[in-house]
């Protein structure tokens, strides 16, 4: 059975812009992988068509079905993790084996406050 995981140092899930994230990507696979990639990306969810942007990719050189590799990524300045009524911007790390045959995603928060920026109240008559 295949098992992928991403461990971020100190189990940190919230980061400020420009902060460096360190951690370990781990995998236990039944077969030898052809490729293992860690992507830092953001994507949108909400009413409209989803958008996605891969900000950084780390390709691990490996021929071992079970392995772990350290990584270090300096986070960009934005966009911030955000949720409004029409759109959410979500940051995540994604560990991908063999171009998507196996995938593990871990969400993170990127914002100056360490919390998702929300615009979740409005004045209205109900």
């Amino acid at each position: 059975m295949n098992n992928l995981s991403i461990e971020i140092q100190d189990n940190q899930t919230a980061f400020t812009p420009g902060e460096t994230m360190q951690g370990t990507a781990q995998w236990q696979l039944d077969d030898i992988p052809k490729s293992v990639t860690l992507n830092l990306l953001w994507y949108t969810q909400g009413k409209g068509t989803e958008d996605v942007s891969i900000v950084e990719s780390i390709h691990f050189d490996t021929y071992a079905p079970t392995d772990q590799k350290p990584f270090s990524i300096t986070l960009p300045n934005g966009p911030y993790s955000f949720s409004g009524k029409l759109l959410s911007i979500i940051w995540a790390l994604e560990l991908i084996v063999d171009k998507g045959s196996e995938c593990h995603r871990q969400e993170i928060t990127l914002s100056p406050t360490g919390q998702e920026i929300t615009i979740n109240t409005s004045s209205a008559t109900v």
């Binding site: 009413k47 949720s83 029409l86 979740n120």
Partner: peptide
């Protein structure tokens, strides 16, 4: 004041 649902939590999100 009305709390709006986050886009990611909306059941009708894409």
């Amino acid at each position: 004041l009305v709390s709006a649902m986050k886009a990611r939590d909306n059941p009708f999100a894409i």
